[in-house]
């Protein structure tokens, strides 16, 4: 009996955390590196789902290949968008917010006009896992694995590659990094493309779990935005992990007792409380702690 309850809780936690991480990670890295929020992020996820649905139903590709198509497709779209639009707003971060909201409208309504109100579904892989008296979706557990894997890949890229070092330098002080010969424009371009590709991946992965409609992005962005706000832009990896973990711990029990919507309201309340006391989010708080530790160590 106890094992059942525990397994259920762990499953809920993993399911929620995967959703938060996958929904927010792309947004997080763009915020962390470029300090810009892409308000069309939900629509990028939607595009990923649509690409997967098209590749599966018309291209007859297996699901993993569809996911690759989504990543590449949305990543390329992000690349083009960065070059034509986003880079004009680097001095006007909030202008970027408003402009990308315009893009979001164009995308969702454009897809609605071209494809109509719904899209052919992608079947949900039925991989059932039984523990005791409960059965769990293996697919959702795999999503947790993918989410953690994505963070791990990101961490490796940031801390073990040359471009990662350059990116971290650009995050700390873009002007200084540019003076040292780091090509900031290229890093921003690649970051935006990577963030977009991640959004595409999320859309591909969650396509089998939901109805594919032009406005499906809204179901992801409210949660993604909360995760990003609570995590903060100071360090995308620390921010994403801590934020997703804490928010999952809060929302999982709430959602299983009172339903998804109470869970989301609980998340919003949590976000408000966090930013009231930690305005830079968790990663900002961690960064301030580190700085203060440096200060104490500097006592003569």
């Amino acid at each position: 009996m106890g094992l059942d309850v525990l397994a259920n809780l762990l499953y809920q936690f993993a399911d929620n955390m995967a959703f938060l991480l996958l929904a927010a990670l792309g947004l997080m890295i763009i915020l962390g590196v470029i300090d810009v929020i892409n308000l069309a992020h939900g629509e990028f996820i939607m595009l990923g789902a649509y690409l997967t649905a098209l590749s599966y139903n018309w291209g007859h590709l297996p699901l993993p290949a569809c996911a690759v198509v989504s990543m590449v497709g949305v990543g390329l779209f992000g690349l083009v968008l960065e070059r034509t639009l986003i880079r004009r707003f680097y001095q006007d971060k909030l202008g970027a917010l408003v402009a990308t909201w315009g893009v979001s409208l164009i995308l969702s309504q454009g897809i609605l006009i071209v494809f109509g109100p719904s899209m052919a579904a992608v079947p949900f892989p039925q991989w059932t896992l039984t523990v005791g008296a409960s059965s769990f979706d293996g697919y959702r557990l795999m999503l947790f694995g993918v989410a953690v894997g994505a963070v791990a890949v990101l961490w490796w890229l940031l801390y073990h590659t040359r471009i990662g070092v350059q990116t971290r330098a650009a995050m700390q002080n873009a002007e200084m990094a540019a003076c040292l010969g780091i090509r900031i424009r290229r890093i921003y371009l690649l970051t935006f493309a990577a963030g977009s590709a991640l959004a595409g991946l999320t859309g591909a992965l969650y396509a089998p779990t939901t109805t594919i409609v032009p406005l499906m992005g809204t179901g992801f962005v409210d949660v993604a935005f909360i995760t990003v706000v609570v995590g903060g832009g100071a360090n995308p990896i620390v921010g994403a992990l801590t934020s997703a973990a804490v928010l999952s711990v809060i929302s999982a029990p709430l959602a299983s007792i009172s339903g998804t919507f109470i869970g989301r309201i609980g998340l919003l309340v949590a976000a408000l409380v966090v930013i009231r006391f930690l305005p830079q989010g968790f990663s900002g708080y961690v960064r301030d702690l580190q700085r203060r530790r440096m200060g104490a160590a500097a006592a003569p």
Binding site: R291, M294, G295, A296, A297, A298, A299, P300
Partner: peptide, 10 residues
């Protein structure tokens, strides 16, 4: 008051 590693006011 310190800023990072620098003690500005002692």
């Amino acid at each position: 008051k310190s800023f990072g590693g620098i003690r500005a006011i002692d």
